[in-house]
Design a protein around this nucleic acid. Structure first.
Lengths: 229, 229
DNA sequence: TTTAGAAAAGTTGTAGGATGATTGGACTTA
DNA sequence: TAAGTCCAATCATCCTACAACTTTTCTAAA
């Protein structure tokens, strides 16, 4: 069977090049792209071709154009943007349930696969939680809390799980911070973090799952109570 | 605070209209779109504007253009395409782990929230599995099996979970069918399906989770064994 | 000097035309 | 009937022109 030739269109070639320039960090988030006229010369294509490429990336959420001003990098992950939009169309409770599913799986896998480096990262992030808690800074605590949970997910050594968790948590967090700060409700029991860490360290799968359930259920109750007020 | 004006560009307006025409089913998958010249008149925009809109949707994976032939609808969900691409970049094992996470959560929620209609749908799909199994048709069995699991996910009454499961399972299935059929390995123990259904019927959360674990672990072992050959 | 406003320069948005490349079907011919 | 040719339809790319908007620069008045 012959492989199909399938020549890429000029537009698609330019799209790929721009995507790579963003992904590689050559153009970072917030950076302004060169003007159309210059990009035309650099890619050696006509204005139409260039504009079609840019428009595709604008719709994908990687770029943003403003008439008269220019084009800036808005995101580095099309998948992240797609997931972000999906989360925004869903309720907080729905998203929390999905997050619980991922977190439970992550804890289980982490208990099996974690290495020393993973344990170290988790320990460090718990310190950050404790610090923020002592200062009474809600926003900072939630941020440190996310870092702890991301460390667990990373310890699962499943890249897909990691990406899903990352991009589902990100938009969810902003809603949560909003609610939490507005309510000024805040109490932190650090035991749960230590116990979860210990379970993963001891490779006790059942205990790890159990602590995640406890943690998320507490969290859910908290959110529900606040939302009902 | 005044609300921001933010006029949508013509291109974005056309994009939205086309997206809605696809989502509403007015243009179905496989359908051919009218030619550029006609769409220009219908949307009352210039050729450039129309082409930029179409190009954005081509890159999103909703449309596909072929020079000399025309433009056809390729998918109805940009989110599905994005997830599809992500799954393709991951290994089967990674994807199976994510699927397990979603399935476990779904079974748990289904055990709590299932209604009579959900139970009926699940029962019907088990019949299909049994039928295909008796015929010894691997492909048909796997298809019916997917329907059963989708019924569980639907019974969780969490739309986001449903969408995620749908679009992760779809590309995964084709790989699985390929492996299974090539290997000609096939044995079906129908007990597990009935037991899982019964647990959900009786709203026994723990039992439901347990059966899902059993099911997926069996499945994983099977895949692993085949891949190692 | 400061500052408000006008002018200019730069950038993206939209329009329309022209030509090339590819495809699929109609037509022709053996 | 079947193979090959031709033609019309369609998308791909390029070009020029002008409109709309933003930022910077310049100007003139307080």
């Amino acid at each position: 069977m012959l492989k199909k030739t399938e020549r890429l269109s000029l537009v698609e070639q330019v799209v790929i090049q721009i995507e790579q320039l963003i992904e590689s960090g050559h153009w970072q988030i917030g950076d302004q792209l060169p003007a159309e006229m210059q990009l035309m010369k650099e890619f050696d294509v006509s204005r139409n071709t260039l504009r079609e490429a840019i428009r595709a990336l604008v719709h994908a959420g990687l770029l943003e154009t403003k008439q008269g001003s220019g084009t800036v990098v808005k995101s580095s992950s099309a998948f992240g943007v797609a997931l972000h939009r999906q989360v925004e169309k869903s309720s907080i409770m729905e998203t929390l349930e999905v997050r619980l599913a991922l977190e439970r799986e992550a804890a289980q896998l982490a208990a099996i696969r974690r290495n020393d480096h993973d344990l170290e990262a988790m320990t460090e992030s718990i310190q950050l939680c404790k610090l923020a808690s002592e200062k009474g800074n809600v926003q900072e605590f939630l941020q440190a809390d996310i870092i702890f949970h991301k460390a667990i997910v990373k310890a699962s050594h499943n890249k897909m799980l990691e990406r899903l968790y990352e991009h589902i948590t990100e938009p969810l967090q902003s809603s949560i911070v909003e609610i939490m700060v507005a309510d000024a409700y805040f109490n932190y029991s650090e035991e749960i973090h230590y116990e979860l860490l210990e379970a993963i360290k001891q490779q006790d799968v059942q205990a790890a799952i159990s602590y995640v359930n406890t943690y998320i259920n507490d969290f859910r109750e908290k959110i529900k109570r606040i939302q009902e007020d």
